[in-house]
């Protein structure tokens, strides 16, 4: 009962946030509301037992997306102009689609029922056999990295491809000619500087914890990469992008991103050389369980590297555009 109550309150908050987004014309407020939307949906994911997903949503949806959107409205202007065309037709289209979808939900099995078809076929096998076959407590990591490793390789390649897309649209962030000076960034905010310096090492430590503890608790390469990128984004925002470029330069990121994908794919190739299928980790070491462990650690490292490089690369590309428009 409590779960239902928490769920209802959170869903109500989401509904109000979404309605506010429709009517607001101030894009800054719209982006902030979207950030709140992401955070509240992360809470709902926790309530629905999806801890790994909630972790990712909080770091990615509320963190990186918001920063990128704020960078975009810094370039494109803060207010939406008045809408000229009528919205009656839009409302009708939306209502008809919504009614059709709700009619569709009537045929779905009831929410939360353990006898639903979705829980009958693949999931029991993952839940019962993965501790023996893969040997990790976190089933999500086992499925992500081992059973559906090929799928995850594809996702990693998509993240890499998106980075290439953004870099080819916005241009790579060239190292700025002017030396890094304390004037860049939020120079007046002494308190921010001190606090950022205190917490950035802890954020990076946390990212490493999430990366290597993902087999046992919520976490893994995707979350760790995003958190590590967030630490450097915080550094760049507080001290200026040129300082961050001295730690991890855009050129290095262009090496890291493909390196992660190659690391991932080469684990699969090693398995093939040893006579098994692509991404079969059982043959990597003397026993199957040890092989699974090595394989998962290495491919999570590859995922973390690519996601870190892609997220930071996206931020560098956007911040470079903003700085260039400020100079002009």
């Amino acid at each position: 009962m409590t779960e239902v109550l928490i769920d209802l309150v959170l869903l109500g908050m989401l509904a109000m946030t979404a309605l506010r987004v429709i009517f607001l014309k101030d894009l800054f407020a719209v982006v902030m509301l979207f950030s709140i939307f992401s955070f509240v949906s992360a809470l709902i994911f926790i309530n629905l037992d999806a801890v790994d997903v909630a972790f990712t949503e909080a770091a990615v949806g509320a963190g990186i997306s918001t920063v990128l959107m704020l960078g975009t409205i810094a370039l494109t202007g803060r207010t939406e102009k008045k809408n000229s065309h009528s919205s009656i037709l839009h409302l009708v289209v939306v209502c008809v689609t919504g009614a059709a979808l709700i009619y569709g939900t009537m045929d779905m099995p009831p929410f939360g029922n353990a006898d639903n078809p979705i829980h009958q076929h693949v999931a029991p096998r993952y839940i019962e056999d993965s501790p023996k076959e893969v040997g990790l407590p976190n089933i999500v990591t086992s499925v992500l990295a081992s059973y559906r490793g090929f799928d995850t390789l594809g996702e990693t390649v998509v993240v890499f491809a998106a980075m290439i897309g953004v870099l080819s649209l916005l241009g790579t962030a060239r190292p700025t000619n002017k030396r890094a000076t304390p004037e860049s960034g939020l120079a007046k905010h002494r308190v921010l500087h001190v606090v950022a310096k205190i917490i950035i090492p802890f954020i990076i430590l946390f990212a490493l914890y999430v990366q290597f503890h993902g087999d046992y608790g919520p976490g893994g390469g995707f979350q760790a990469g995003v958190i590590a990128a967030a630490a450097l984004i915080l550094y760049a925002l507080v001290f200026g992008a040129s300082f961050a470029h001295r730690i991890v330069s855009p050129r290095q990121l262009e090496v890291f991103a493909p390196l992660g994908v190659l690391l991932y794919a080469s684990v699969g190739l090693v398995g093939m050389i040893k006579g098994a299928n692509f991404l079969d980790y059982n043959v990597l070491a003397s026993t199957a369980a040890a092989g699974q462990h090595y394989g998962i650690i290495i491919i999570e490292l590859g995922v973390g590297l690519t996601v870190f490089a892609a997220m930071l690369g996206l931020f560098y590309a956007f911040s470079n555009q903003v700085e260039r428009s400020n100079v002009q």
């Binding site: 007046k188 308190v191 921010l192 606090v195 917490i199």
Partner: peptide, 12 residues
Amino acid sequence: LTSPTASHALAK
């Protein structure tokens, strides 16, 4: 550590 910093940065 972070929340008062955020409030401070906002007000400043």
